[in-house]
Design a binder for these strands. Structure first.
Lengths: 167, 167
DNA sequence: TATTGTTATACTCTATAACTATA
DNA sequence: TATAGTTATAGAGTATAACAATA
């Protein structure tokens, strides 16, 4: 269950490793918790994301669903086939385009999506509700900084440099 | 590439959803970055973890490797077979137990593990080096709080309650 | 000719169950 | 009889390439 690199081993006093270690630890625990909860609903990560995207974006072609999910069109076919038996999604021929299929949430699918949203809000409350204002500010600022860093062109250069250093 | 639930859509003013959203965003970006970097080294997440565990724990039986990785013994066989062609790991009959195989890093494997450690330290510096002391304190406190929450028995009860509420 | 979704094929990670060899 | 690792089988997520139907 524990896929992390340092499962409680000896502490390494590397610069910045502590904060990064926290990030890994939280990531692993969150992933485990979410997958477990989704399994109780008969869902997987990928399939739940399909429901979320459809819930947020409304009915759409498989093509657009693939783009929204960031996966191949073929993969979408598989995910929808996997969701079909549970009756959470509907697929009808697109009215304006004979090639396309229009995918939408069924009534059950809508309820499931709302349930997932509720789960998420409850988790958010459970994790953050009693965090002191001052701590939360530092958390948010740091997380935003990380997002910015990971999206910045400088990060791409850093990685390219690391790759070339060894090849 | 964007597997997150709310890909920049309209902001939802739910209690605690903002902080949780930050966590998801960072998680997705980190996972993408790491997988991409590992691919450049000819590795995957699971295989890199094998190297890390062997680097940290030294030579061990496949059984123990499976336990350390938190996967089935069968899965370890597959991961080692996948690592074999690159010559990063060695497998020799266990000297004291004719049933077992002793797995260890080759010289190349050791170098690769050190390289991964260096990558990690560099990433940690890149992400956290210039975070102000005060912000970092809030970040660390919040992350530790999340870990504690996710590991607490209260969390298990919360999840059980959520499950029963709908079944 | 370009686009939509499919069939075909393949790779990775994961699991359980049955079996072999060894303790 | 119990343990270590394998073969056999299966499911989930992912991809590309080739192809049919439709624009």
């Amino acid at each position: 269950m524990n896929h992390i690199h340092d499962p409680g081993g000896p502490p390494d006093p590397q610069v910045g490793a502590e904060p990064l270690g926290r990030l890994f630890a939280v990531t692993v625990l969150m992933a485990d918790a979410m997958e477990h909860d989704l399994a109780e609903r008969g869902l997987t990560r990928a399939r739940a994301t399909v429901l979320s995207v459809l819930h947020a974006g409304g009915p759409m072609k498989q093509r657009d669903l693939a783009a929204a999910l960031g996966v191949s069109p073929r993969n979408v076919t598989g995910l929808l086939e996997a969701l079909a038996p549970s009756g959470l999604v509907d697929r009808v021929p697109h009215p304006d385009d004979g090639r396309a299929t229009l995918v939408s949430l069924s009534e059950r699918g809508r309820r499931m999506a709302q349930r997932l949203d509720a789960d998420r809000r409850e988790l958010a409350r459970f994790l953050f509700d009693d965090v002191p204002e001052a701590e939360l500010a530092g958390y948010l600022a740091t997380m935003d900084r990380i997002v910015a860093r990971l999206q910045s062109p400088v990060f791409g250069e850093l990685r390219r440099a690391a790759g070339e250093r060894w090849d």
